[in-house]
Design a protein around this nucleic acid. Structure first.
Length: 762
DNA sequence: AGCACGCCGACT
DNA sequence: GTCGGCGTGCTC
């Protein structure tokens, strides 16, 4: 019986079968490559690096259709069986090919530069005609057709070597000699001596700095062949580390010392981390490793810095270069072998880290929308963490200011095993301004009044605006024409700098026309939807002496004076929520909260509530005034936020979800069909809707098809439909026609969509 | 994803 | 006549 290997490639495809590489020395198949090891396989016209995810018995003739793997890179596993299990579980759950998940979760280790060489086996003359048998030849010199033929006939040997990243360094070529002893050559001599002493330098300019000589002297040295350039293996970069920061003393006050919980909510980020610490330390004491996931790379730094003051901490995020991540994986491998307890803090890229002695998984801010991957498998990372916890048989601990209805539901279901811990915190000082009763815009009289106090008392304030730029759109006052994006069905945002009109989705830019392109008159005005630029202008007019800063994706002012405690008013988008808290904040204001109300999305009230709670994170150890401007001051979420405990809010939320049959009481999927022309997308969506009905979908289970909230985006038209079932297996069953859809439109499936109104974009 | 094949319109 | 646009189909 022959055994084939199942190889997963980092491509949007399922695994493929290959024959095991054939050893030319023993004329026998090599020992079966282990599951989890990397193999080089022929792929189309060239070669590819993939991962062995399984073995498969093959019968008789079946083996003839398979191609043969070329080389095995790892004698042991590159990633563990648990990790492969996780990849397959996520692929299955999200209805995406496993290769997509692999590519998304291990962006390192499978993208190596490989050198592929061939050599004919000596005795044979047939292959000799194009491939020498006495030396290795680059495989690309041989036609793929010949290569495949010789390979099948067993006439060639193949060799794969990893090409390590190279750097060019400057090295000394000659010793200092007489011709450099003259007075005029003093700089050249100094440089050469310095170079001999250092051994090598990264560049000529580095040597000139090192020896304190002009660059021209170094250049002359090279010209005279005293020094030259050489290619060397690049040094592996140092691991991503952050300087430890001690926990604030106050943070641990009054917190439950119990380790007996599986879920923490309430308090602020530092409170929750402190509460987790005893539990983390308990695992490290028994030499276990703890995986801590955070939603965005900016939180890696904060979390790792605090933890590093207490326990051995590693970190990983997209900020780290590929080589750094590879080096980290090697380091963790070593820590596992040596049975060192350690903490790994990271974004979703930490999920497949080689933690062989994993003891616990912690998901911080587990309700954060940033955990929803926006492309590829579109998995919600806390869900993936749950899978990994089950696969590795370790506990999962979740933490967030506000628990999610999903997790509340889970702990109710498993009441006997799972316990929730709630950290009470002070209520925010909240002031809601009714924009209907004020004519002042965009700053209400109330807001101006408190800003005046900030100004007089030398305090700090953050004013949040719903968008960057000056205004959401510009419109002609005569004919109501509005500037729109040529690629998307969206209005162009007006940026006052350079009078630019910009699409915040596709990046299209144009200059604001002097006259209305529609009616030809001069009457183009920004609409009242104010952005950060407008707010800055408005504040500057009122407080010309005040230090006014801006922080959004267009302009990130240097915040260090504010961190040093200086007075100032910071106008920002929610981008500021990813920065460390400012020390002297006494006001947090939002100019127009209504943009977060988003009617019709069953998660909108939860995310608004979470946003309001997170405002407190901007000044965790203070109690600043929170001033919210809104046209709907009576909005139910604002009412609950003021009147109820967050636990009560959550209970009500869960009850409402149950009433309307939304998750966690149902499983949902969004299916989006996208095409270059609108008719194709529309037709595909109605065809698919019919196919879903044929598959058994009932009226209540199928919503749509409807045009996507933004029909045209980046020149592509999208239609979408939702499937909602009471049971996940049924959802998967109904989705079959969507999974296997072939047609003129591209289909994207999003399991557990987070936002119903927004669009899938990549 | 990447690549080939095939079908159409536009041009050295 | 060929070049190159992209729609379609396949990859062990």
């Amino acid at each position: 019986m022959q055994v084939a290997i199942r190889v997963l490639l980092p491509l949007p495809l399922p695994p493929f079968d290959y024959l095991t590489p054939f050893s030319k020395d023993t004329q026998e198949a090599n020992a079966l490559p282990k599951v989890g090891s990397r193999v080089v396989v022929p792929w189309q016209q060239g070669i590819r690096l993939g991962l062995v995810v399984g073995h498969k018995d093959i019968r008789g003739g079946e083996g003839l259709t398979l191609r043969e793997a070329i080389a095995v890179l790892d004698s042991d596993s590159f990633i563990s069986a648990n990790s492969i299990n996780l990849i397959e579980t996520i692929a299955d759950y999200t209805c995406t090919p496993a290769g997509v998940v692999l590519n998304q979760l291990i962006p390192v280790g499978l993208q190596l530069e490989l050198k592929h060489e061939v050599k004919a086996i000596a005795e044979n003359s047939e292959a000799n005609s194009s491939i020498p048998s006495d030396r290795w030849t680059m495989a690309e010199k041989v036609s793929t057709k010949d290569l495949e033929f010789f390979r099948q006939q067993g006439l060639i040997e193949e060799r794969i070597t990893e090409l390590k990243p190279q750097t060019q360094v400057m090295v000394p070529l000659k010793a200092v000699d007489k011709s450099l002893e003259g007075k005029a050559q003093i700089n050249q001599r100094l440089a050469l001596e310095a170079l001999h002493k250092a051994g090598f330098v990264a560049s000529g300019s580095e040597l000139s700095r090192l020896a304190n000589v002009p660059e021209s002297s170094v250049r002359t040295l090279v010209k005279k062949n005293y020094a030259g350039y050489e290619q060397r293996d690049a040094e592996p970069p140092p691991l991503l580390t952050f300087p430890p920061i001690d926990f604030p003393k106050t943070a641990s006050d009054g917190l439950a010392s119990s380790k007996n919980f599986d879920n923490i909510s309430g308090g602020n980020r530092v409170d929750r981390l402190v509460a987790l610490l005893p539990k983390i330390k308990a695992y490290l004491e028994v030499k276990k490793q703890v995986l801590i996931l955070v939603p965005e790379s900016i939180f890696v730094e904060e979390t790792a810095s605090y933890l590093a003051s207490q326990v051995p901490t590693f970190s990983i995020s997209g900020e780290a270069k590929d080589r750094q991540r590879l080096a980290l994986f090697e380091e963790l491998e070593l820590a596992s072998v040596q049975k060192q307890g350690c903490v790994l803090v990271g974004t979703y890229l930490a999920l497949l880290a080689p933690l062989k002695n994993l003891g616990m998984i912690v998901v911080l801010e587990h309700g954060s929308g940033s955990y929803k991957l926006q492309a590829g498998s579109r998995i919600f990372i806390p869900k993936a963490a749950e899978f990994l916890a089950n696969i590795s048989k370790v506990p999962l601990v979740l933490s967030d200011a506000l628990d999610t209805p999903e997790m509340l539901h889970r702990s109710i279901e498993k009441a006997s095993q799972e316990k929730r811990s709630f950290i009470a915190s002070n209520k925010q000082r909240l002031h809601i301004v009714d924009l209907n009763t004020t004519k002042d815009w965009p700053l209400s009289a109330d807001l101006i009044r408190v800003l005046k106090q900030i100004d007089e008392r030398n305090r700090q304030a953050i004013i949040l605006s719903p968008r960057r730029g000056f205004s959401a759109a510009i419109r002609c006052i005569n004919c109501m024409w509005m500037a729109e994006c040529p690629n998307c069905d969206l209005s162009l945002r007006y940026h006052r700098k350079n009078y630019e009109l910009r699409c915040h989705q596709c990046g299209h830019k144009e200059t604001t026309p002097d006259m209305c392109p529609s009616c030809g008159q001069t009457g183009l005005n920004p609409t009242r939807a104010a952005g950060t630029q407008w707010i800055v202008d408005a504040i500057r007019k009122l407080f010309p002496e005040q230090n006014i800063l801006r922080f959004d994706n267009d302009q990130k002012d240097d915040l260090s004076p504010l961190y040093a405690g200086e007075s100032g008013i910071l106008v920002a988008t929610t981008a500021i929520m990813r920065q460390p808290p400012l020390p002297n904040i006494s006001l947090i204001a939002h100019t127009l909260l209504d943009t977060h109300f988003e009617l019709g999305d069953f998660r909108a009230s939860e995310s608004l509530y979470r946003l309001l709670l997170n405002l407190a994170e901007l000044a965790p150890d203070k109690r600043p005034l929170v001033l919210l401007q809104s046209f709907q001051p009576e909005h139910p979420v604002l009412q609950s936020f003021q009147e109820e405990d967050s636990e009560v809010f959550l209970d009500n939320l869960l009850a409402r979800r149950k009433l309307f049959g939304y998750p966690p009481f149902s499983s949902m999927a969004k299916v989006q069909l996208t095409a270059r022309n609108e008719a194709a997308a529309k037709q595909a969506s109605s065809w698919l809707a019919n196919a879903l009905i044929t598959q058994g979908a009932e009226d209540a289970e199928l919503l749509g098809p409807t045009p996507a909230p933004v029909l045209r985006l980046k020149g592509q038209y999208s239609y979408q439909l939702f499937i909602k079932t009471t049971d996940f297996d049924r959802l998967k069953h109904l989705l079959q026609p969507a999974i296997h859809f072939r047609g003129a439109a591209r289909v994207r499936i999003d399991i557990d969509p987070r936002e119903m109104l927004s669009f899938l974009d990549e």
